Amino acid sequence: MPSATAPFDFQEPTVVQLSDEERTTGQMTIENIGIAVSAMHRDGLVVLENAVDTSHMDAINTILVKDAEEMAKMNSTHFNGNSVDGRPTGNMSQGPPLDPELLYEDIWANVPASAVLSAVLGPKPHVNYVNGNTALGGFGDARQRVHADLFFNHAQFPFAVVANYYLVDVSPANGSTELWLGSHHDTSFRDHRNCHPGGRADTPPEEIGKDGEVVKGELEFGIRDERLEARRKFAPPMQPTIKKGSVVLRDLRLWHAGLANPATDPRIMLAFVHTPWWYACPARVVLPASCQEKVESWAARSQHPVQYDAHFVPASLDHKKVKFDPNFSSANQGYLSMLPAQLGSGYVDDVSKY
């Protein structure tokens, strides 16, 4: 039996328990880095526990919980529906506050996480996306389709990792994310519902393709049902329990799904997407100029630097109105030339509809 489809004997996320010294100094032991890097390659995900000062998470959570009710009523708020039956899931995009004093380094440029990211992606990874994900209560059993956060042809090696920060303890009781551990191993763009070999994923229904064939457009976002059922037989999904103060590193290729939040309070998770220095992602994080000195200091630090591909603007920014723009594509033509051309490029121009 191929190793990619062998029954798993590990069905829970690997948790690396950091000591208080590792958290405060940022110096992970080489053994813990070894565990974390191995888990990233094997499972596509690792949890670094006790990596963040929980008082920082509490401060941000207090602000965002208050904002969540307001944002849920705003026309500009992006809701991550993507459900099988079209029902609303209560899953909305909600980014962190952008005031300089609230850009905590152990969230925006966490040193233990950066050590693992540098080992997986190479030195000085770039951050191209900052946002968050909130699961509101009161939406019954609605859920997202299983998906990976990709809309385009992509590599079959680690090229993007998201660092997630749950601002509270999470479990199935308040809508932790469904995870398909190890699904990043043998997946490609071919597994995505919006992949159309020989054409783009935004092809309108019944449009004539470039070779004269009729191409049926499929704008649904998610992993194809047959691939899910094949994997479910030997590696079914699970819903983790994760402590506040943790950093969850997830390979962007990993299959997952947002599930309903049975609790009353919103479950809020921040998201920072990292790509290799050579990847040349065109996306930029828009930040106020008042943050520039702090953000650029993280790139200049000698210990595990983090480079933000940022566009700094002179005005203050309302974090409640940050545009949802999950563009994780690459502009590196050499890299793109190595992808399987028969799968098409995918949809990289405007993915906000998803």
Rank of each mutant, 00 (worst) to 15 (best):
A72F: 09
L48R: 03
H319R: 03
V47I: 11
P158F: 06
L181Q: 06
L98P: 00
V273H: 01
A230G: 03
N128L: 04
F328E: 02
N194E: 12
F328Q: 08
E22M: 10
G182P: 03
Y354A: 12
S118W: 04
W255F: 08
T89H: 02
E49S: 14
H196C: 09
T177S: 13
L270Y: 07
M1C: 07
I30A: 00
K210I: 15
N61V: 06
N131G: 14
G344M: 13
L254N: 03
E105R: 12
D106F: 00
S83P: 07
V273T: 10
Q144I: 07
S302Q: 14
A59N: 00
H147C: 02
V306C: 13
T89W: 01
G182V: 02
F157M: 09
D191F: 10
L336E: 08
V214K: 10
I60H: 00
E296C: 01
G34E: 05
N194F: 08
V295N: 04
N80V: 10
T25C: 13
Q144D: 11
V248F: 14
G182W: 04
P97K: 02
L270C: 04
V146T: 13
V65T: 14
E206D: 07
Y335C: 05
I63S: 01
Q144F: 08
V16E: 01
R87V: 06
N153T: 04
A310R: 12
V161H: 02
V273R: 05
G198D: 03
S93G: 07
G258R: 11
P204T: 06
I63E: 03
R23N: 04
L18S: 00
M28D: 05
R190P: 03
L179P: 11
P240H: 13
Q239Y: 15
K243Q: 12
Y354H: 13
M71H: 01
G258T: 11
R42K: 11
N153V: 06
G44K: 02
A271F: 03
N50S: 10
L252D: 00
R87T: 04
E218C: 15
W298N: 06
S19D: 11
G344S: 13
I242T: 03
V84K: 14
T14H: 11
M238P: 10
G212L: 14
E206G: 12
A310S: 09
T187I: 06
G209W: 01
V15C: 07
A72W: 04
I242F: 00
L150R: 04
G132C: 11
Y129F: 15
W180L: 07
P237S: 12
A310P: 02
E69L: 11
G95W: 00
L45S: 05
A51H: 01
F189C: 05
A113T: 09
F221L: 06
A6Q: 08
R143C: 02
S93Q: 08
P125M: 03
N80F: 08
M40A: 09
